[in-house]
């Protein structure tokens, strides 16, 4: 058996099963939680903190091509996009997304 060649696929099976189990455990527990309860409020805050930390990680500590862009450029582009998004009470998602995308595109073209 050529384990060297199979190792990535083995890792993929492990990663997929592990990820699915996390989702399934969530379903198992969801029925017992009352969405009006204090536990729900606390758990929501914990979840948002986790999701936020993961999103910021993709910007601040990226893998691959983004890692070649200086940190201040990455943060600056994101900050500008968020500013566009919040510049009106009715959020402007598409203009904000375009701001970030075009700025990063421009940076990549100029360097």
């Amino acid at each position: 058996m050529d384990w060297q060649g199979h190792a990535p696929w083995l890792a993929l099976v492990g990663a997929s099963v592990g990820t699915y189990l996390c989702r399934a455990v969530g379903v198992l527990m969801a029925g017992r939680l009352n969405p009006e309860s204090e536990v729900f409020r606390w758990l929501s805050a914990v979840t948002y903190a986790m999701v936020a930390s993961l999103s910021v990680r993709l910007v601040v500590l990226p893998q691959g091509p983004l890692a070649t862009v200086p940190l201040w450029v990455r943060i600056g582009v994101c900050a500008l996009s968020v500013a566009v998004m919040m510049s009106r009470p009715k959020r402007r998602l598409v203009p904000a997304l375009l701001t970030g995308t075009l700025l990063m595109l421009g940076y990549g073209m100029l360097t």
């Binding site: 409020r41 990455r74 994101c78 996009s81 968020v82 421009g106």
Partner: peptide, 30 residues
């Protein structure tokens, strides 16, 4: 440059949707 923009757009989208979260506990947590 196209790849750069493509990679950025995903985390950026999540950061943007976070600005629409309403309860203060969740905003502070974010």
């Amino acid at each position: 440059a196209v790849t750069l923009a493509m990679v950025l757009i995903n985390p950026l989208f999540f950061l943007l949707t976070f600005t629409e979260v309403r309860p203060w506990a969740n905003r502070l947590a974010i």
